[in-house]
Amino acid sequence: MKILVCISHVPDTTSKINFKENDTKFDNNGVQFVINPYDEFALTRAMWFKEKQGATITAVTVGNTSTEPTLRKALAIGADDAIRVNTEAIDGLQVAKELAEVVKNGSYNLVLAGKESIDYNGGMVPGMLAALVDYNFVNACIGLEIEGEKATISREIDGGKEILSANLPLVIAGQKGLVEEKDLRIPNMRGIMMARKKPLSILEPISTKTATTTASFEKPATKSACKIVSTENIGELVDLLHNEAKVI
């Protein structure tokens, strides 16, 4: 099995979000970038298939040179090689088209991605990629088993879960459940040393056209101070929620 793991390079979850140049650009000053948390689940599941079923793993990122440390981290965790498509990721469709090219040329039969990037929260690249290469696709995946060509997949639905079966090739957009959090891999010293020697190829993009662009950014409106209700008068909270906030 040839697995491609799609890695999105995102600000660490504790980052303060700021914008610059008249709110037209994301300000990455002082921001630490990491592997998108959902992609860590995908990569860890890929490692299981590698260790138990002899799969090979390629990690891929669409992004400029600044994303390479994140890709190296994926190699340190255990991917065999890596590909960087050398263009700035601006729009989901653009990224999906670049990934589709990588999938076609490498004939991967399992593509593991995350359900969304925690920066732009697009939630679109894996589904678009699947549609472009005509692979089966499961979103919000919380379980994946593969026997030969046959996959059994669970996905989260509103208020429960659905079990699906499909043949490879397949694109999966994963989240917690795909593996458990305690099983997530972190790079060790040996992995980091080995990652330096693993191949990281750089491909030029097939196109620079984008379907969407960001015109500007905004921060949420600053909210008014919290009203404190005394423990002696909890009825007041009920009153405020009913008469002021009008939510009950």
Partner: peptide, 10 residues
């Protein structure tokens, strides 16, 4: 976007 820490006008 940014898990509700911001918005973008797309």
């Amino acid at each position: 976007a940014f898990s509700s820490k911001g918005f973008n006008n797309t």
